[in-house]
Write a protein that binds this DNA or RNA. Structure first.
Lengths: 351, 351
DNA sequence: CTGAAAGCGCTAACAC
DNA sequence: GTGTTAGCGCTTTCAG
């Protein structure tokens, strides 16, 4: 593969000139430039990125690591972040962990190895080790829910708690008293992972229920592991056989898919018999049958904040800061008052 | 950031030794190795990938470019390809084009710049330019439906035609005669793109219809641009106002979402009033209401073939070859015989 | 406006 | 086993 010397020789200039042309440094005479361009085309020259990054000593590369690209939420988020970064002249390197902390560490190492100018970690699994890794390299980073910001690390806090509270309150206002929290979780390949966002949503649910205790609201919990929709299905089957509830709150939209299906196969109608609320408000929600009520996380805002913050840290050497994003409940047709006369139930009616 | 010299100095060895340790070349005495490891840890040394790739002169990097990660099909495909590559000791660099041929070219250039050992292009937009680019660099590649294989390029052919034929035949066997093809397309940022897979599916539909002409089967076509589900919704609204059909075939699953919703909002029931068939058999299908009949493309097989073929070209210098993958119809609950007594219709019944 | 040349950090002969 | 050293291909002063 042609290199810069061959181009220089063919164009009868020095490598410095070729470099200037390639990088659009506006200091080359039009005539020379044209000659160089011709040589480049003729040799199909494509600069070696390793050599140029090595020589340059810095990159315009942002790392983004997410848990699971199969969840549309992450897909949409990755998309806006990429757009935003591109517009600012940065490339983004996307890595997926599949909820494995090993892969998280590996991805981070790769990004450090590629000397990414900044890194955004939007995973639900967390590891102290990941934090330390980044910290020891002084790589600007934004973590979701890492605790607190410091010199090189910004902390993005999404108001899961408020979102859950709004969801529960809405159900309570509709008249629901037996509310099920469907706590699904991915099955990673090792233990010791802190599925932070899951725990957080769960605790938020407990807190929300508690605040309505006086109204006689009682929580039901069902736990089930597996990939999104399947876990939701498994969970709801389990719940139907052991709990009584008139509403279910899912931890994310994909599990809600499974919940809807499980309810349907049990002969129950949504929202007539059971109300269902999802989380993340992915684009799927409005195309489901019935359209799914869900808690929205403003992806565009999150994406913008992440990139903006990263670039401020990178380019202006600003310290890490606290980012705060609100959530809201988007009401659709999967929620309604609980069945009127019927007693609460959780198993198939044999009517 | 610490470099290899500092590690070498601290460990009182040469850089060659550090390099050997880092790359697990089993030629270093345990004692020395331990010293080096300690130094690495102490300095938080992380090798500079640019330097090492530059020096090495080759990479274990596979490029993968897809159109749209928001379509779960591509997400799943990317996932299996990544798994497969990882297992063979390769990293994969994922790029998304958003159906823009500009971005296709840009992604390809980046991959060439990173000297990817091989590249897989699984996009529906195609450009001669992309082909030429790869060809001029002798980078092993596998294209979907590029035409024919040559020395450095393998051609993956997915039997869309057979899939569509199976779908149409199934509908015809059920008794449908007025079948709508919902031809949605992404709105890219420029013209001149060949949405190959779309055209192909469309032509396959026309051919299928033709083969049943004797039975009185007549095709309806509706065209609409936009992002998947939205395009499906727009298309079906348009179709309802102008055509008569008892079954609809979508070009992919996401548009089918929109179709289901559009039918519902028109007061039509699936499959009682209209049957619907999707394409790609993404995981969504079985969670929809009703579960969606769809044409399956065996992602695992495709992923395996792609990686296997690429590696053979890379490592054994084998020439490009023809890959062939079959499709099959997965029947679920969105298809049924057409309404019995009622005349064919396409507008809301005012009964 | 263009050229010469010193690195960037690492790898891989080759020598010891 | 381990050290020396010549590149890998590009960028970037600094001269001219």
């Amino acid at each position: 593969m042609a290199n810069i010397y061959q181009v220089a020789k063919l164009a009868k200039v020095s490598t410095a000139t070729v470099s200037a042309v390639v990088n659009n440094q506006d200091v080359v005479e039009a005539k020379t430039r044209k000659r160089v361009l011709a040589a480049i085309k003729q040799l199909h020259y494509q600069p070696n990125l390793y050599a140029s990054n090595l020589a340059r000593g810095r990159t315009r590369l942002l790392g983004l690591v997410v848990s699971d690209i199969a969840n549309p939420f992450f897909g949409e988020l990755a998309h806006v972040i990429q757009q935003e970064a591109l517009a600012r002249g940065y490339e983004v390197l996307l890595a997926t962990t599949d909820f494995s902390s090993k892969r998280l560490i590996a991805s981070l190492k790769q990004m450090i190895g590629m000397r990414a100018a900044g890194v955004a970690i939007m995973t639900s699994e967390m590891q102290k080790q990941a934090l330390e890794l980044l910290r020891s390299h002084h790589a600007p980073a934004v973590f979701e829910d890492v605790g607190t910001a410091d010199r090189h690390i910004s902390n993005l806090r999404i108001d899961y708690e408020g979102g859950i509270l709004k969801a529960v309150r809405y159900l309570v206002d509709l008249g629901h008293r037996n509310i099920l929290f469907v706590k699904t979780y991915p099955v990673g390949d090792e233990r010791g992972i802190n599925f932070f966002s899951i725990r957080q949503r769960f605790e938020a649910f407990q807190a929300a229920i508690k605040s309505f205790k006086a109204l006689g609201v009682s929580p039901q919990i069902v736990t089930y592991g597996g990939p999104g929709p399947l876990a939701g299905l498994g969970a709801i089957r389990k719940a139907l056989s052991q709990s009584r509830f008139t509403a279910a709150v899912a931890i994310a939209d994909p599990p809600a898919l499974g919940i809807l299906r499980g309810l349907r196969e049990a002969g129950l109608s949504v929202p007539r018999d059971v109300s269902v609320i999802g989380f993340d408000n992915t684009y799927l929600c409005e195309y489901l049958n019935p359209p799914l009520t869900s808690v929205n996380i403003p992806r565009a805002l999150v994406g913008h904040l992440v990139v903006e913050t990263l670039l401020r840290m990178i380019e202006n050497n600003e310290p890490g800061r606290e980012l705060h994003v609100e959530t809201e409940l988007i009401v659709r047709e999967s929620t309604a008052p609980p069945p009127n006369k019927r007693a609460n139930r959780g198993t198939r009616r044999h009517s």
